[in-house]
Amino acid sequence: MSSTASVLTRNNPHNGKIQSVPIGKIAIWWFLASEMMVFGGLIASYVLLRIHNGGWAGQAAHVRWQLGTLNTAVLLTSSLTMALAVSASRQDKLRRTAVFLGLTVLLGVAFLCVKGVEYTGELREGFTPASGLFWSFYYGMTGLHALHVTGGVVANLTFLVMAVRGDLWTGKQRRLEYAGLYWHFVDVVWIFLFPLLYLS
């Protein structure tokens, strides 16, 4: 085969590997793809059942869209700060990375707090997961999403500690990049959930 020669010259046989994409990147995309299918399944179920039933507008009217909008803004901003943190880490700017990571963590926590306020308010009004199919989906989907946000906050916090202690540079920037991909994914899921649950 003609490609043999070029492969062999490109790779020194005794230490070389075919390394087009870093393994971590394949892994994180694999993980995100499986997550997409999970949320995709939930969202498809929601859409199908809602089309099928139709009678949810009454239940949906009780959702606090103002808080939902606020949370959308919070999460979008946190995606921005995360992107800035990643790019700062690429330029080896340690302090800047720590600052933006800290902001991302704060915004993530803020998102969870707002979510908690929403939940308590709704529960106090008597809307539990068992109050109707809309509420089942509402709690199910936002709850699963909030778990993902929590996971992201924990991950970002770990990187923040690393950045503050100054040991983010031993080949770990790439991992921060993956954490960033994950954080953006969590944001994208919210971008789907927000109109489906709050604006319809």
């Binding site: 499986s34 299918m37 995709g40 179920s45 039933n53 068992a130 199919l133």
Partner: peptide
């Protein structure tokens, strides 16, 4: 990978139905 996600979603829904009395799959609850 590509096929199991929706079933994981379904399993979560079924689990919520069983433990939190949601009604994803119960006709009486829509």
């Amino acid at each position: 990978l590509l096929s199991v996600g929706p079933l994981i979603a379904g399993a979560v829904m079924l689990f919520l139905d069983r433990t939190f009395h949601t009604g994803f799959f119960v006709p009486g609850k829509g």
